[in-house]
Design a protein around this nucleic acid. Structure first.
Lengths: 210, 210
DNA sequence: GTCTATATGGCGATAGAC
DNA sequence: GTCTATCGCCATATAGAC
């Protein structure tokens, strides 16, 4: 029960800053707007975080942690690979649907400051080797098709993240600009993405390739 | 041979502006930087395009046209659906590999000004209905699995665009920050994405589902 | 058409009262 | 800790000479 958002000033700032930064990015955000959103004065932002850059970095770290899935609990669980993937897609799509700005927020800042990005990733202690190992073990055991694990991971991320990141574009092009219609589509899509990925790694389908 | 880039000032500006805007986005770009890149004075930018906003819109339109694939020639060709998809993936991935900033440029601006985005799309005359119809005809003819065509299209776009848009992130996380290694991966990936998509719509694989 | 010089406004950051 | 007032800079945009 610790660290729940109280209504002390620092938390108000963090909440407001996340809202503004994730919508408009570092360059597009204004300290004044964050202050207004937090219901405080602009000077207080500097009192708590000194510079816009430092405030931004605090938010980026927080958001990146949120969006970077907790893989260890998956890797080490006793579930089958199919169940693991299924649960991941459900959970991750759910997270993104609740926070539709996060993907484009990360993507926006990816090119802006590569060194900062690298340092954030390092600090989260992400270790993809265990993830690769998990897939490779499943391949050796004959449970899934033999292929580059990176393909599976990137396909999985692409199919979950892109539809949310490019949401407004997809809505206009394919859903008559009807956000609800698109959200329904994405909700149903959890199931089809799951089938799509599982088919692609399934042993059964690999026998009739040219 | 018309409309090739001459070295008149307007074209120099357009080339410079595209370079800067696609890298840094509307908010992150400076008129001074564009002027420097074009080798001219800042005041000239305003002489030719009046405002930063108008210059940006000119670039956005140009880039969007480039990134929006010419679908009609595909839809109306006599190729099989498998060939059409294969060619699309090859061509589109190639385009993105040559212009790695374009996906994130579009994604960056997607949330910033939805009305402008909608107007751009309208002006390009994109008509997805014919695209849907093409897939639906193939389904009726029994050539591919029956499913929502939008799923196919969005999967296709996701698998092609996301790996480029999130390139720097993928490089750091999965490729030891080695850009060449990642580019090689994406080049080889053309083939696997093709197999991936074709498998997912193939009739053959749909017989042993629960 | 192209330049230099300047106007104008906005934003991040600070000073200092309370 | 929180506020008001203000500084100093930088970015867009314009004026005006050539």
């Amino acid at each position: 029960m610790n660290e729940i958002k109280k209504d002390n000033t620092e938390d108000k700032i963090l909440i407001a800053a996340q809202k503004v930064f994730t919508k408009k990015g570092m360059d597009g955000s204004r300290m004044q707007e964050i202050a207004d959103e937090a219901g405080i004065n602009k000077a207080l932002l500097h009192y708590y975080f000194r510079t816009k850059q430092k405030l931004f970095e605090a938010i980026f770290n927080k958001v990146f942690e949120k969006i970077y899935p907790d893989l260890n609990s998956f890797i080490q669980s006793e579930l089958s690979i199919e169940e693991k993937i299924g649960i991941f897609i459900e959970k991750y799509t759910g997270l993104l649907l609740k926070n539709p700005f996060l993907p484009s927020f990360i993507l926006k800042e990816i090119h802006r400051d590569p060194e900062f990005l690298a340092s954030v990733i390092k600090s989260t202690g992400v270790n993809p080797k265990e993830l690769f190992a998990m897939f490779e073990n499943e391949m050796k055991a004959g449970n899934i098709k033999t292929m580059d694990p990176k393909e599976i991971i990137i396909n999985l991320l692409a199919l979950c993240i892109f539809p949310v990141a490019a949401g407004p574009l997809m809505e206009v092009m394919f859903f008559e600009n009807d956000k609800k219609k698109y959200d329904n589509f994405l909700e149903k899509r959890k199931k089809t993405v799951k089938e799509f990925i599982l088919d692609s790694i399934s042993i059964k389908n690999s026998q009739d390739k040219p």
